[in-house]
Amino acid sequence: MSFENLFHAYWWLMFPIFGMFIALIGMFQAEGRSRKVMDLIKSYVDQGKEPPPELLKMARDPSDYDMSFSAPKPRNSNAWSFVVFLALAAGFSVGYWFVQGEDYAFAFAIVAVTMGVMALGALLLLILGRK
C-alpha cells in the first residue's frame, strides 16, 4: 500500500492520536507540577511564611491542559458542555441531512444522536446542579 493510499484510508486517525498525545502530555505535566507546587507551599509553611498568591492560585486552579478527573471544574463547565455538544449535534444533523442518500449516512445519524443525548445530559446537570 502506497503512502497516498494509506493516507486516503486512515487520515482521520491523526485526530484521536493527537488527542491522546495531548492528554498524556497534559497528564504527566500536571502531575509533576502539582507535586512541585505542594512541596513549595509546604516549604513556605514550614518556614512560617505566607506562600505567594500566584502559587496558591496554581494549586487551586488546574491548567487548561490538565486531564485529571479529580481537577476541580471551572464554573459554567456544564453550560459550556451543553453548548459544545449541542453544536456538535447540530453540525452532524446538518451533515446527515446532506448525505441522506449515501451508504455512510447512518454514521452521521449515530454521532448526531449521541451528541444530542450528551447535550441533554449536560443541560440536566446544569439545571439540577443549580438547586
Binding site: I22, R33, V37, L40, Q47, K49, P52, L55, S63, Y65
Partner: peptide, 24 residues
C-alpha cells in the same frame, strides 16, 4: 499553547523557589 502554559507555570514555580531561597 500547551508548551507556553507549561513554561509560564514553571516560571511562577522558579520565582517562588528563588524567593524562598532568598529569604531563608
Amino acid at each position: 499553547g500547551l508548551v507556553q502554559d507549561g513554561a509560564s507555570r514553571d516560571r511562577i514555580l522558579d520565582n517562588a523557589r528563588r524567593e524562598l531561597e532568598r529569604n531563608r
